[in-house]
Write a protein that binds this DNA or RNA. Structure first.
Length: 582
RNA sequence: GCGCCCAUAGCUCAGCUGGAUAGAGCAACGGCCUUCUAAGCCGUAGGUCAUACGUUCGAAUCGUAUUGGGCGCACCA
């Protein structure tokens, strides 16, 4: 509908141009849904924008434009308002067309082909596999998955990917943490390092290893800790302490260290996968950092940087001149001890991503990583790829509130609320919905009590309830012997304010999907659905649907049937279920 | 100190990239169930859009400064 109006306007401007009244059509011209019903269905600021170049008053220009628009059948009337807006009132015919489109489109209504033929690589969550996902990761997961759904509904081919940081020192710390817990199970008395992973899941993995490998890895505690420097809380250094423990464990265990690591990472990763799957978040690919090292890609990408003279040696380390591309300082890629930094893997990973040939590469990162944007883009530019093809979306942290109080969390001590805890407490639907209800770059307060409540204060239930209510109406209609056939419906019979409002709202859906997707803003869809649900509830209270008047019954059932379809389609994109009854 | 993000009703937040009288939910107050689910509806009240300048027909939206909050500034991931 909007396109048709747009075309009409453009044509009109062309005509005026031919008459020498106007020159260019500036991009600032907008055609929008109106906020206020009294302003019609759509409004444009075209006369305001063009008045200056036409050297005339906006009101006069608006009239000229209107005169030029000879009546298309979907426009009921136009009027000039305020300083020179042109308001369009659409005819009933146009809303009937939308309703038909919705019902015939069914579950696929709202999709379009804007992105057909374009591929997108969407990477998100990518939490370190050092423990279960917590509520912070949940936001990235819900956001990424919803953005993915939105883009797919525009026809983009989207691949969801999780980058697994399964290499490096953190993995060694993980292994040592498990090893020490395992020793405790063997009856040894150990002092757990301050810098180790302290969560209970580490103990679980340790006993898992005990089941698989028995006491094969048992070493005496005295041997393990002999000569190891003091830990932080003992007045020493926690980093050196754990590093020495790592080397000692590797020495003592040999291949066994790897076995412990393998059991550990597999256990944690499978937990993460299960967690996400249950949350409705599905990845096409789990990309291993270690694989970049094993297949030499990491090494090769550094070599390429060397060949193109983007790196230099300083203080025994290898530095990448990211300042050439606007970063604030150069970054180390190979440390003086020969180890690659995390950034080195990231360079290789992004190079690999780009070489897979996607039209667009999107990363969803926690906002605390914003300092990495410049250097990653620098690496892309250094390989002569276009850094603009990489879009980095930042997601702020979520604070949990329970009983009006902030829930304190700290990863290191293991006292964090896991995503699983959250899902168990508030349910998948509320979790998915609440996470995306706020703009992603906005800090959010996640109110556990609100998400759990099954009352009118909970927006998820509010929308789901609208869906269930419509379903219930149809059940009643069927029991009363009403045979519903939307093709027989005469929507011209709908004259109540509440039903006209809902027709307007339904015609907005496609635009909302497009806008949410293109701007990566799922909250727009969430707000829309709440608004639609609200209008339905008003309609429900204002008008009976099942009446003696068969004609009117058909017309009204058609409206709510279309409403039900749109609610369902929208909720599906958000990953929220549509219960038939509540 | 430098960089990025943010500041809108008592609370949590929208405001469609400069438009018409700044909106919603919750909380507060007052109404509505013999009628399709009251997990609902209707109404009332609530604001110097952090502050100050500037840009123009027009600013919550753009620019500058100030104040106040969050995050980041490793040869850690």
């Amino acid at each position: 509908m909007k396109e048709q109006l747009q075309n009409l306007l453009t044509k009109c401007i062309h005509d005026l141009k031919d008459q020498g009244l106007l020159s260019e059509m500036p991009s600032k011209v907008r055609l929008d849904h109106t906020k206020d019903k009294s302003h019609g269905d759509y409004a444009t600021n075209i006369a305001l924008i063009l008045a200056k170049q036409a050297k005339t008053n906006p009101l006069i220009l608006a009239q000229t434009i209107i005169d030029q628009l000879d009546g298309a059948d979907f426009i009921e009337k136009t009027e000039i308002a305020g300083p020179g807006f042109i308001n369009f009132f659409l005819s009933d015919k146009s809303s009937a067309a939308v309703i038909n489109e919705i019902i015939e489109g069914g579950d696929g209504y709202g999709t379009s082909n804007i992105g057909v033929g374009q591929s997108i690589l969407l990477e998100y969550v990518s939490a370190n596999p050092t423990g279960p996902l917590h509520v912070g990761h949940g936001r990235g997961a819900a956001y990424g998955a919803t953005v993915s759904n939105l883009l797919r509904s525009l026809g983009y081919k989207v691949d969801n990917e999780y980058y697994v940081n399964d290499a490096g020192r953190q993995m060694d710390i993980l292994s040592v943490s498990i090893f020490l817990r395992y020793l405790a199970l063997c009856g040894e008395t150990i002092r757990f390092p301050d810098n180790g992973y302290q969560g209970k899941y580490i103990n679980d993995i340790a006993s898992n290893i005990m089941e698989i490998h028995g006491v094969n890895f048992h070493k005496e505690a005295a041997l393990v800790f002999e000569g190891i420097c003091k830990d932080e809380l003992e007045g020493g250094n926690k980093e050196s302490h754990i590093d020495e423990l790592i080397s000692r464990s590797k020495e003592l265990l040999g291949e066994g260290f790897k076995s412990i690591f393998t059991v550990g990472i597999e256990s944690i990763l499978s937990g993460i996968k299960k967690d996400l799957a249950e949350f409705g978040v599905v990845f096409e690919k789990w990309f291993s950092e270690q694989s970049l090292i094993d297949n030499g890609l990491s090494e090769a990408s550094i070599k390429r940087l060397q060949e193109s003279k983007h790196v230099y040696k300083k203080d025994g380390a290898l530095w990448f001149k990211t300042t050439d591309y606007g970063d604030e300082k150069d970054r180390v890629v190979v440390r003086d001890n020969g180890n690659h930094t995390y950034f080195a893997s990231d360079i290789a990973y992004h190079l690999e991503k780009f070489e897979r040939g996607y039209d667009k590469v999107i990363n969803v990162w926690g906002a605390d990583h914003h300092g990495y944007i410049a250097r990653v883009k620098a690496s892309i530019a250094a390989f002569d790829h276009n850094p603009e093809k990489l879009e980095i979306l930042l997601v702020q942290f979520a604070n949990l509130y329970r009983g009006g109080k902030k829930v304190q969390m700290s990863t290191r001590s293991g006292s964090f609320v896991t995503l699983e805890d959250l899902r168990n407490e508030v349910g998948n639907d509320a979790a998915r919905f609440f996470y995306i209800l706020r703009k992603s770059e906005q800090h959010m307060d996640f109110d556990l009590d609100l998400a759990k409540s099954k009352t009118n204060e909970n927006p998820v239930f509010y929308i789901q309830y609208a869906y269930a209510r419509i379903n219930s109406v149809f059940k009643q209609a069927q029991e009363k012997g009403v045979v519903f056939n939307y093709k027989d419906a005469d929507l011209g019979l709908l004259t109540e304010e509440s039903e006209k409002t809902i027709l307007r709202e339904l015609s907005r859906y496609k635009g909302v999907i497009e806008s949410s997707a293109m701007q990566y803003e799922p909250h727009q869809l969430a707000y829309y659905l709440r608004e639609l649900a609200s209008q339905f509830h008003s309609y429900y209270n204002a008008c009976p649907f099942i009446l003696d008047d068969q004609e009117l019954t058909q017309a009204r059932l058609t409206v709510i049937h279309a409403t039900k379809q749109v609610l369902y389609n929208g909720l599906s994109i958000l990953g929220v279920s549509s219960p038939e009854s509540m």
